[in-house]
Design a protein around this nucleic acid. Structure first.
Lengths: 128, 128
DNA sequence: AATACCATACGAAACCATTCGTAACATAAA
DNA sequence: TTTATGTTACGAATGGTTTCGTATGGTATT
């Protein structure tokens, strides 16, 4: 992934909203953010303008206002972030991360089953 | 985990060295860092002094120089970082993170087996 | 003791992300 | 058209991390 596309924490919050809700105005994004955090409207606006400059999002002019949409893709970003974490704190070992993550929180039987199935599918594709 | 104990990226690099190599002088830490990055000795020194103030590391006076050791524990930090990532990019779902992580990189048969065993042990302890 | 060498302390610059105030502009209501 | 409301652009302040230069102090070598 392009280093230019590395989002900051605030940018990630905004991207998350755009991924979940689809294209949105600054007002809509700000309303969502306001539920968890108190900061001004122009702060959100400025952040989204910066994200536009960086190419993290795009926008279209609608009659009343601009409508923003994510350019950076969710899966790519997740992959980038996992990679960063694995390298910075788990000596590059993904399985160490996985074991630690599973140990941290209660994992439901259904989730465990899902993971088992995924492990099965992994074994079938990379047999070595 | 105490918010005071949240390391920055540079601090994490230093902690990683202290975890791996055990207690070390600034010189030793700096030599290790220099292999991957070019920055001055006093930069490393300053960072470690700040980490001392924050309580991330401790130090003992040896004849020639100070010897630093980690106070922040590796597992705790990993747990904190995973939690942060799960919340900021995986809607709080650990299993989503795990699935994505496993999909990102080739996982060896041995690692898969380890994870399976861990899943087994989880099922035995939290049966619900 | 004088010199050279290394470590420490610390202020300050540079950098970056976040925050907001204010001005300019557009749209809708009176 | 005037007023009110909402949107955008943008400069600048704030706060935190990283970087380094320089002064100071200690240890060891001559």
């Amino acid at each position: 992934m392009d280093n230019k596309l590395k989002p900051t924490e605030s940018e990630l919050k905004i991207l998350k909203i755009l991924w979940e809700k689809g294209e949105s105005t600054v007002r809509e994004v700000h309303n969502t953010i306001s539920q968890h955090k108190t900061s001004g409207y122009t702060t959100t606006l400025k952040l989204m303008q910066i994200m536009l400059e960086k190419g993290l999002v795009g926008r279209n002019k609608k009659t009343k206002s601009h409508v923003y949409f994510p350019i950076l893709k969710e899966k790519e970003t997740q992959k980038y972030l996992i990679n960063k974490l694995v390298n910075s704190a788990f000596s590059g070992s993904t399985s160490k991360l996985v074991l630690q993550a599973l140990g941290n929180t209660k994992t439901s039987a259904k989730e465990i089953e899902e993971i088992r199935e995924f492990l099965d599918s992994l074994e079938n594709t990379n047999d070595y």
